[in-house]
C-alpha cells in the first residue's frame, strides 16, 4: 500500500509501486477503453485467407508490388509500436487503468504482427526480395531515421519523467509513435490495403484490416486522451514554442510520407496513385491536428469517398460469403 505522500497525483509517474489500485478510477476514459478493447478481441485464423490466393494471381505486377510493400512495411512496425509502448510509454505512467489498457494494446500489436505474418506466410511473398526492395531507398531510410531518433530518446537512461525536459521527451515520443506512426503512416497503408476490396479483390485481407483499424481507433483514442490529459495536468508544457515544435514534428512526418509514397507507387494502380494517397495522408493529418487542438494545415478533402462503403458504415454481411467482423466477445451483462 502506498504511503500518503506517494499517492499518485497525475497520470505521469515513475515508481513501480504506484498505480496498483484500480478503484477509485481516476481516468474513466482509460478504463472504458480497456473494456471495449477486451470485447474487440479477434484472431487472424478466423478468416480463411487462402481464399484470396486466387485473387492474388490476378493482380498486375504493380498491384502485387504495392500490396507487398504495404504488408512488409506494416509487419515489423506493428512490433515496433509494441516495443515503443513497453519501453517508452508504459514505464512512465502511473494509473492502473492506463496500464491495463496498454497491456491489452501491446497484445493487440502482437496480434497485428501475427496477422501480417499470416498474410506473408499465405501469399507467395519472398521476404528477402521485399526487404531488399526497400533497401537503399532514401525515403524509407528517412522514415526509419525518424522512428529511430525517437526510440533513442525513449530508451535513454537520462529520461526523468519528473523533469520538464523528461515530460517534453515523453510527449515527443508519444506523438511520434501514436499520432504519426500509428495515426498517419499506418492509416495510409490500411487505405491502400482496403482499396483492393473495393474492386472485389482480397476480401479476406479486407476483413483482417477491418479488425485492425477497429483496434487502431482505440489506440488513437487512448493516445489522444493521454496527450490531452498530460498537457492539462502539466501546465509548464503549455508554451507556444513547444506547440510549434510538436506541430512541426507532425508536418515533417507528412513530408517524409509523401516522398515515400512517390517511391512506392511510381506508376499508380487502378484507383490509386501517389498523389491520391498523399492527399489522403494530408486529410488524415488535418484530422489528427484538430484532435490535438491545432488548426488544420492542408484543408483538403478525402479523395477516397469509397471509404464510406469500406469503413464508415455498419456492415451487413452475407455470412455465407464474407466474415462477420462485427461481433464482440465477453460482452454479456
Amino acid at each position: 500500500m502506498a504511503d500518503k505522500k506517494d499517492e499518485p497525483t497525475g497520470i505521469l509517474g515513475s515508481s513501480l509501486r504506484d498505480g496498483l489500485q484500480l478503484k477509485p478510477v481516476r481516468y474513466e476514459w482509460a478504463y472504458d477503453l480497456y473494456n471495449q478493447a477486451v470485447s474487440n478481441t479477434w484472431f487472424p485464423n478466423e478468416v480463411q485467407l487462402v481464399q484470396d490466393l486466387a485473387d492474388f494471381d490476378k493482380l498486375s505486377d504493380e498491384e502485387k508490388h504495392a500490396l507487398k510493400t504495404v504488408i512488409s512495411y506494416l509487419n515489423p512496425n506493428e512490433l515496433l509500436i509494441n516495443k515503443s509502448l513497453a519501453f517508452g510509454i508504459y514505464p512512465h505512467l502511473n494509473a492502473a487503468e492506463a496500464q491495463i489498457y496498454l497491456s491489452k494494446q501491446m497484445w493487440e500489436e502482437a496480434n497485428h504482427f501475427m496477422t501480417f505474418e499470416y498474410i506473408i506466410e499465405t501469399f507467395p511473398f519472398d521476404r528477402e526480395e521485399i526487404y531488399a526492395a526497400g533497401f537503399g531507398k532514401k525515403s524509407l531510410a528517412d522514415k526509419a531515421a525518424f522512428q529511430n531518433k525517437h526510440l533513442e530518446i525513449m530508451l535513454s537512461k537520462d529520461l526523468d519523467i519528473n523533469t520538464l525536459e523528461g515530460k517534453k521527451d515523453f510527449v515527443r515520443s508519444l506523438v511520434a509513435y501514436n499520432i504519426v506512426l500509428e495515426g498517419i503512416w499506418f492509416y495510409s497503408g490500411f487505405m491502400v490495403g482496403m482499396s483492393f476490396r473495393q474492386r472485389n479483390l482480397l476480401r479476406n485481407v479486407g476483413s483482417l484490416l477491418d479488425w485492425i483499424t477497429r483496434d487502431e481507433n482505440l489506440h488513437l483514442t487512448f493516445g489522444i486522451n493521454l496527450l490531452l490529459t498530460i498537457l492539462d495536468e502539466n501546465p509548464e508544457l503549455q508554451t507556444s514554442e513547444f506547440a510549434d515544435e510538436i506541430r512541426e514534428l507532425i508536418l515533417e512526418a507528412v513530408r517524409l510520407e509523401e516522398a515515400y509514397n512517390k517511391d512506392m507507387l511510381p506508376n499508380g494502380i487502378l484507383g490509386l496513385n501517389a498523389d491520391y494517397v498523399n492527399q489522403y495522408v494530408k486529410f488524415m493529418t488535418d484530422r489528427r491536428l484538430e484532435e490535438l487542438g491545432f488548426e488544420k494545415e492542408y484543408n483538403v478533402g478525402n479523395p477516397a469517398k469509397w471509404m464510406a462503403a469500406a469503413n464508415d458504415t455498419l456492415e451487413l454481411v452475407n455470412f455465407f460469403e464474407s466474415t462477420n467482423t462485427s461481433y464482440e466477445v465477453n460482452s454479456v451483462k
Binding site: N217, D232, E290, E291, D312, Y327
Partner: peptide
C-alpha cells in the same frame, strides 16, 4: 456493434467527447 473503425468520409474528432466532459482539455 458498439464500436467501429474511425470514419474517414465524414468529419470525426476523438477529442470531442473529452472536451464535452471536461472543458479544460483543449490540447495544443
Amino acid at each position: 456493434p458498439r464500436h467501429q473503425s474511425e470514419q474517414t468520409t465524414v468529419s470525426s474528432n476523438k477529442s470531442e467527447k473529452i472536451k464535452q466532459q471536461d472543458s479544460r482539455k483543449v490540447g495544443f
